[in-house]
């Protein structure tokens, strides 16, 4: 356990020294805040864009506050996901190709600790960044529109955080399997996109599909929709996702164990 903490601390130190601890949360905050602001100014933006006949009146329906928050989640679901996949695409492959994995793994350190300490560090920063960003989105929604109940916000945040964590874990796993960082990021994003498209296009309910999480998160903001999602099926999806994360970690550990270095 001590060794795990030492590995974990090294990962945090690395994130501090590479400024990841600064730019990732700031990116999420800007991302989360800009959605309510852009929505608020949308009528002004449209009218100043010209092309409007003299005297035309633009009337956009004012979105409901929960819809504004849901559209922030959509932003996180695209750009946030991209950031998480890109910033972790070489987490393990770089340790392997640079030879540092070989330096560390000849010491009496378990492979499981090596992989999970890195995973925990990556996920904790991603979660913190997302929570900051989502809080910013929430704050601006309240300030510019109207309040949203915290319980619903919390539930949607937890569901969405699980989805981000799942994609972050996929990126880590692919970085252990694929030498090319770009290919690892692409694989993680493609898997995420595929699962999420499948969950919304196929005509039957997919409790087993983590790709359902973003929709569930957005849906849980809408009080009217609560009836449609029984809490049991939400729990099942969450559990399946957690199991998938565990399996991805087992695969990553196995990959490091069988090939700790490239050279």
């Amino acid at each position: 356990m001590t060794k795990w903490l030492i590995l974990f601390r090294k990962e945090w130190l690395e994130m501090i020294r590479s400024y990841k601890i600064v730019w990732l949360p700031i990116s999420f905050i800007v991302l989360g805040a800009s959605q309510p602001i852009a929505t608020y100014f949308m009528p002004d933006i449209l009218s100043s864009a010209g092309n409007m006949p003299e005297g035309a009146i633009i009337s956009l329906p004012t979105p409901k506050p929960f819809e504004v928050l849901a559209s922030s989640l959509q932003q996180f679901g695209v750009i946030g996901l991209l950031l998480i996949a890109l910033s972790n695409m070489s987490a393990l492959s770089l340790e392997r190709s640079s030879g540092t994995a070989a330096m560390i793994l000849v010491k009496p350190v378990s492979f499981v600790s090596f992989v999970t300490a890195k995973w925990a560090a990556i996920l904790s920063l991603s979660m913190v960044s997302f929570l900051f960003g989502y809080s910013a989105a929430w704050y601006y929604t309240i300030a510019l529109f109207d309040s949203v109940r915290w319980l619903e916000v919390l539930l949607s945040a937890m569901l969405f955080a699980l989805w981000l964590g799942f994609v972050g874990t996929l990126a880590l796993m692919f970085s252990s399997l694929i030498r090319s960082a770009a290919a690892a990021a692409f694989s993680a994003l493609a898997t995420a996109a595929l699962l999420s498209i499948v969950s919304s296009t196929l005509p039957f309910k997919q409790v087993w599909n983590p790709g359902r999480l973003p929709t569930l998160a957005a849906g849980s903001l809408d009080t009217a929709q609560h009836i449609n999602n029984s809490s049991l099926s939400v729990w099942l999806t969450a559990i399946v996702t957690a199991v998938a994360i565990a399996i991805a970690l087992v695969i990553a550990t196995g990959s490091m164990r069988s090939r700790p270095s490239d050279v």
Partner: peptide, 20 residues
């Protein structure tokens, strides 16, 4: 006053990026 903090934080990121 609501939007100013957002601009400041973006500015902060740009400054840090330039320093790095």
């Amino acid at each position: 006053s609501l939007i100013a903090p957002l601009f400041l934080i973006q500015l902060l990121l740009i400054v840090i990026a330039l320093i790095v």
